[in-house]
Nucleic acid binder design. Structure first.
Lengths: 216, 216
DNA sequence: GAAAAAGCTGACCAAATAGTCAGAACTCTG
DNA sequence: CAGAGTTCTGACTATTTGGTCAGCTTTTTC
């Protein structure tokens, strides 16, 4: 909601954003407990007191970062077209999720950290939203199975496969990089991951690729 | 290992283990940075100074915990029978991994945290070991594919599916519990997860279940 | 059973860290 | 350009935390 209830003063907000970006990087790298306000200040190239001018406390700052992250996530995860065919929905979902991971690796990792920590710092409201969305997709999958439009699978496990695998890729950047012996994952790497994931998920469901996406 | 040790002081080691177990719980819950020696001491019901009697520093303590965890992991992950058929190897691997997760949820979560943090606190030696094992399995899978004993898939992605999904289960205990509305995952839940995972992975590979495990 | 060793602890300490605040330095308006 | 409001900051504080240490207690050794 963009809303700290503060007046919109573009210049001031630039500084604020600067600090927010630095905070995102810091929280990504060190987690909530490990993050240091001083380092955030250094990275943003402002004195520490300036951080506290914009954000009363560390937890306020983290809230702001998390809120950004979850907004991003929710905006992208929102639409499911119930009428469309399973293969298309699943493929779109996967490609979108991989894309998000590519565009916002920091956001993604913070999200994952938060999940790992049992959502200790996430508001009830946002937790509920995330869960509701998952349950919605699961229901959809169950319908498809009932209608024999795909092979039977535990819907939650299927969602986990998708979620965990993309997530895992983003999370374990270090490990993945060390396996592939590269310094960063390219656009191609992500396409390859998306293709591979689509293939695997469709096989699990006994579905044929629709063909509107590329294939390996 | 400790089997041949001569100077064993059982009483002292009991205390040591007591502290180690408490530390495991603490590190699981709060991560390295968030962990507090005082809380570990409280949980172990010893004075804080006693913790430092056995472990010089926080990082020494964490090393000890991590070492335990990785030993567990490696012991279980070690053997791959190259001659056996793919379906059996994969199924065994999955069931063993799920079992580990069931038996040592704390260990598993610490391992995951460490991974998420880019192995910041893990020794080079242990990192290399983990990676080597992954590459070994990947090579095996590539051979099976070349011999047309299973459908083509990116071996790393396949391993990730297995790894990430079980891991994700353990990691997101909170979320999973809230979805199923239970307070703890039972033995049955884990069996169900293992069955489901085996089914999914075998479908990905175009393999038939061997039948020595149960099926859904 | 006494001396030595090992196990244990309360009381400290130094360093680090989140957060405060008085006032300087800007920016905007009339 | 004066004055009001906003943005910014150096210097400070309160508290928390990992870690030390002198000496007490228990166990082992001879």
């Amino acid at each position: 909601m963009t809303a700290t209830g503060r007046k919109i003063t573009p210049l001031g907000n630039r500084r604020r954003d600067q600090i927010l970006r630095a905070a995102e990087a810091e929280f990504e790298k060190y987690g909530y407990e490990g993050a240091r306000i001083q380092r955030i200040a250094d990275l943003a190239e402002v004195p520490k007191a300036n951080v506290h001018y914009y954000f009363a406390s560390k937890s306020t700052l983290y809230d702001a970062v998390l809120s950004n992250v979850v907004d991003l996530w929710n905006a992208a995860l929102a639409p499911i077209d119930a009428a469309a065919d399973p293969a298309t929905v699943l493929e779109d979902y996967i490609r979108m999720k991989v894309e998000l991971t590519r565009l916002y690796p920091a956001a993604t990792r913070i999200f994952a950290q938060e999940m790992l920590g049992g959502w200790q710092h996430l508001s009830e409201h946002l937790k509920r939203e995330t869960r509701a969305w998952t349950e919605h997709l699961a229901t959809e999958i169950e319908n498809w199975i009932r209608q024999k439009r795909m092979l039977p699978v535990d819907p939650f496990h299927l969602i986990f496969v998708i979620w965990a695998t993309t997530q895992h890729y983003a999370e374990s950047g270090t490990q993945v990089k060390s396996i592939y012996r590269k310094n960063s994952l390219t656009r191609q790497d992500h396409d390859r991951l998306a293709d591979s994931l689509v293939t695997m998920v469709l096989r699990i469901c006994g579905l044929e690729p629709v063909g509107h996406g590329r294939n390996t």
